[in-house]
Design a binder for these strands. Structure first.
Lengths: 189, 189
DNA sequence: TGTACATCAGTGAACGCGCGTTCACTGATGTAC
DNA sequence: TGTACATCAGTGAACGCGCGTTCACTGATGTAC
């Protein structure tokens, strides 16, 4: 078995990435040391060559999950730079709803992190502020009141759409909030 | 030790109530059989005289958590029947944010239930629809599009406010969404 | 009304299991000469 | 460039622990006579 320094860094990356995806899909508690290592094709003992403890991994993976989601949002906006309209359309899409592993970690984990320790809340707070700030910039406003409303509605609608058992009703919630935001805020922008 | 039929029903009630509060405070996974029984002053063995399994208890407690939150919302509206204004004010209050154990279980558990099994999602779906329906009624509209937006924004804002580490900023998010909803929807109602 | 008996809420020990963590070991890596 | 050696990523067995669940037991409840 090879294990150069480069390979170590690569393994660490793989572990964090895998844990981040799993966290968004099944929550912070779903990640186990043995499970993570085995899904990376390794045995559990080696875990502690990369992380001091399970909770250190979780902290790192939460950070990754949040910044991945943000990076993806930025990329999608860069690809279709129509400002708010494009962001809202992509955020409140069925694709986003159905792919929590790769989507916005704020919506995927709000209520979990809302009751987590201050360190985890601080990590997500940064990303919420970045989301609000980005939206405010797209709106071209001085104050961020409209952005706060838009972000609350987007996060709420996406999270709710993942609970609703009727797919049509779930679609409708996404569509309704999407149309409302584009119409109401788009005009004033 | 006494254990009449009335006492059994009382014990069961106490267990569900305690589990429901704990679920809203610390999530679905936080409830353990031994912990619940001991916090009710009992030993763990007796648990199975009341519930077939831990997951049966969780299902029951989730249902309770959701209907408690709804009952409370109805009561607060009944006490100050000013319609939407009163509901929004109470929902987006600091008190509500700081008391998840007794507050809206939708906001406390959206992202958890969003990745739970269909049975749990169905239970919460009912309550989301009731929340939307109630809001639509307060708005006096035929269609519920405005209610969907309002509910999304309320749930999103409350959940986000519990993550934000700066209390002032958290207050501001609640206040901003509250004022927005009262102004925008209040006028048209 | 009084007695005998079945029921069953609650007790507490025990179970198997998966968890996070530790540790002695391995062998390829990468450095010192 | 070639050899000797320290490092350390990854292995796999072992640990203590808390979990959900089972079970033989207890004694008050409540019913049958």
């Amino acid at each position: 078995m090879g294990h150069s320094q480069a390979q170590k860094a690569e393994t660490r990356e793989r572990l964090i990435g895998e844990a981040a995806a799993q966290i968004r899909k099944d929550g912070l508690e779903s990640v186990s040391v043995a499970g993570l290592m085995s899904s990376a094709g390794l045995t559990h003992g080696g875990f502690y060559r990369h992380f001091g403890s399970r909770s250190a991994l979780i902290a790192e993976a939460l950070r990754r999950a949040l910044s991945d989601g943000e990076a993806k949002a930025k990329a999608s906006v860069a690809a279709a730079p129509t400002g708010l309209r494009a962001s809202v359309r992509s955020y409140l899409s069925r694709t986003h709803r159905d792919s929590p592993q790769t989507g916005c970690a704020i919506a995927a984990l709000v209520s979990d992190v809302g009751r987590a320790d201050p360190a985890a809340r601080a990590v997500m707070t940064e990303r919420i502020e970045a989301f609000i700030g980005g939206t405010a910039r797209q709106l071209g406003r001085e104050d961020d009141r409209a952005a706060i409303v838009a972000v609350s509605a987007m996060v709420g609608a996406l999270a709710l759409s993942r609970v609703l058992t009727d797919p049509k009703r779930s679609d409708q919630v996404l569509r309704t909030v999407r149309d409302y935001l584009i119409e109401t805020l788009g005009e004033e922008a």
